[in-house]
Amino acid sequence: MLEARLEQADLLKKVVDAIKDLVQDCNFDCNDSGVALQAMDNSHVALVSMMLKAESFSPYRCDRNVALGVNLTSLTKVLRAAQNEDILTLKAEDAPDVLNLVFENTDSDRLSEYDLKLMDIDQEHLGIPDTEYAATISLPSVEFRRICVDLMALSESVSIETSKDGIKFSCAGDIGNGAVTLRPNTNVEKPDQNVEIELTEPVALTFSLKYLVNFCKAAGLSKTVKLCLSNEVPLLVEYALAGSSYLRFYLAPKIGD
């Protein structure tokens, strides 16, 4: 059986909220190392890869590998019943029809229990190659969100260019052009505000802003976001979570002129 207890329901609520507009039905693959999810959007342009490591739960028990086929819209309805600070426990049998969710508020001695019906999902899994990215940029997640939202007001696409001097986001639209350049910047007192650039070669790629704005719904999960780029490969956008867990998004580039 599976039994996984999260100190705060907030984490799962935010993860599901961040991905539910991108993917609808997906398997939560549970094994002794944790709970993983990999799913592509309908157009096969973006991919969500979530890993909640066993260490992120306390306690965590998973006797047998189990895939929990969940409709995220339905899960959202159930999670709405959990307060952010509630202790959340996920439970399932070895061959489950339902996922049992328990929300506890230890202050008020409230215990809520929900059973979510599961579905059989035949999910297409992709092998994501280990990539040595040419550019890795770490920046505040709210800054990245602001840039994407601002540029989307002008255009559907953004060009991202990185050099050792900085990272430049630019777009061209019907009403005009826009560009934002961030230079490497270290703030000793507020390390969350740092912009860090590691570069082995310059990169220039074009991406759909619609997807990037969607990924930015995860900004509430982490103060910083990491962008990993290499020419002609999908962009990796990573939000690191506590306990080496993560929420990653991959986005295929736009190619050719």
């Binding site: 096969h44 899994h125 092998g127 994501i128 696409s157 295929a252 736009k254």
Partner: peptide, 14 residues
């Protein structure tokens, strides 16, 4: 204009 690629072009079957 550039065209949107899909992930299948880059990521194979495991």
């Amino acid at each position: 204009p550039p065209t949107q690629a899909t992930l299948g072009k880059f990521f194979g079957k495991p």
